[in-house]
C-alpha cells in the first residue's frame, strides 16, 4: 500500500526490543507533569501517545529515550537483541527536524555515523542506502535551507534509519508541516512501518495520525499527566485507508476520550510544557 513510500531492505521485526515504562513520575519545579506512567511497548508495535497540550506526552518521550531524567521510575529495555548493525537503539525523529544548516543532506546523515567505527566505504554505503529509501538520492548535496519542510523531515527519517534503530521515537514529526505534505508523509510512514516492522513510539496531537499508524494509542490526561486509557486498533496498518469507517469510529472514540481534557487545556492561561 501507500503511494511512493519508503523502500526498505532490512526487516527488524525479529530483532526488535521490548520497552517497559516503569512507574515514571516527573515534576518540573513544583508542577507535577507525569504520575505513575506504566505500560509496555512490544516488539514491532507502534504506540501513539496522544493528549491535550501540556499533558506531558513530549516529556514522556524525552524520558523514554534518555534525554530527560525522570523524578522517579525507569525505562527498561528488555530483550537486548538489536537489529544488525544497530548503532543507536533508541533513535529520535524531531518535530523541528534538528538538521545542521551548515551540513548537506548527506553530511547530516554522515554526522551520526562518524563517531562509530565504520569504514568510509561502509558509511557511504549506509548513507546511499537510507537516501534511496527516503527518495532523497537526488538531494544528497543540498543544504537544509534549500529543502521544503517535507524533505527536511525525510532527511530526519533517513538520519534515524542510518543508525538502524531498534525503536523509533517520533516527537510530533508532522506538526511543523503543511496539510498536504502531512498527508504524503503519513502514507510514507505507514509504508515504512509495514515494510520494516519497526517498533515506534509516536507522539502526536493529531488523532488522524494516531489511528492511521498506531497499534495502540495511549491517551494521557493532564495535570498531572496520567494514562487515561489505552486504546487498541486491531486493523493491520497496511489495510488502513484514509477515511475508512472503522478508522473514523476509532478516531471519534479517541476524541470522546480526550475532549474534556482538550477543552480544559484550551482555557488554561499558563502552559507548562
Amino acid at each position: 500500500m501507500g503511494s511512493g513510500g519508503f523502500v526498505c531492505d532490512f526487516k527488524v521485526m525479529d530483532f526488535a526490543m521490548r520497552l517497559h515504562i516503569n512507574g515514571i513520575c516527573h515534576s518540573y519545579d513544583q508542577v507535577e507533569a507525569l504520575r505513575d506512567i506504566e505500560f509496555g511497548i512490544e516488539p514491532g508495535e507502534i504506540v501513539a501517545l496522544i493528549g491535550p497540550s501540556g499533558c506531558g506526552k513530549s516529556t514522556l518521550l524525552s524520558i523514554i529515550g534518555g534525554l530527560l531524567k525522570p523524578t522517579s521510575g525507569k525505562v527498561l529495555m528488555c530483550d537486548q537483541a538489536t537489529p544488525d548493525g544497530c548503532l543507536n537503539p533508541l533513535t529520535y525523529v524531531f518535530q523541528d527536524f534538528a538538521l545542521l544548516p551548515w551540513r548537506t543532506v548527506a553530511g547530516n546523515i554522515s554526522l551520526v555515523l562518524e563517531d562509530h567505527p565504520l569504514g568510509k566505504a561502509e558509511r557511504e554505503a549506509r548513507i546511499a542506502e537510507v537516501l534511496a529509501q527516503t527518495n532523497l538520492a537526488d538531494f544528497a548535496g543540498a543544504y537544509p535551507k534549500q529543502l521544503s519542510g517535507g524533505m527536511k523531515q525525510r532527511v530526519g527519517i533517513a538520519r534515524a534509519l542510518a543508525v538502524r534503530p531498534a525503536v523509533l521515537l517520533m516527537d510530533e514529526p508532522l506538526s511543523a508541516l503543511d496539510a498536504q505534505t502531512r498527508i504524503l508523509l503519513l502514507d510514507e510512514f505507514a509504508a515504512l512501518f509495514v515494510r520494516t516492522g519497526m517498533t515506534a513510539v509516536y507522539v502526536t496531537h493529531n488523532l488522524n495520525e494516531a489511528v492511521r499508524l498506531a497499534h495502540r494509542v495511549v491517551a494521557l490526561r493532564r495535570r498531572p499527566g496520567t494514562i487515561k486509557a489505552i486504546h487498541s486498533i486491531d486493523i493491520p496498518i497496511d489495510q488502513r485507508v484514509e477515511g475508512m469507517p472503522e478508522l473514523v469510529a476509532h478516531q471519534n472514540a479517541l476524541w470522546d476520550l480526550i475532549r474534556d481534557e482538550a477543552i480544559a487545556a484550551d482555557k488554561e492561561l499558563d502552559h507548562v510544557a
Binding site: 543507536n88 533513535t91 529520535y92 534538528a98 545542521l100 551520526v112 562518524e114
Partner: peptide, 20 residues
C-alpha cells in the same frame, strides 16, 4: 535542539563541540 539531537545519537562530547 541541535545539541539534544547530537546527544540523542550518542555523539561524544568532543564531537558535539566540534561539529555542532
Amino acid at each position: 535542539n541541535l545539541i539534544r539531537m547530537g546527544q540523542s545519537f550518542d555523539m561524544p562530547m568532543m564531537s558535539i563541540v566540534r561539529k555542532i
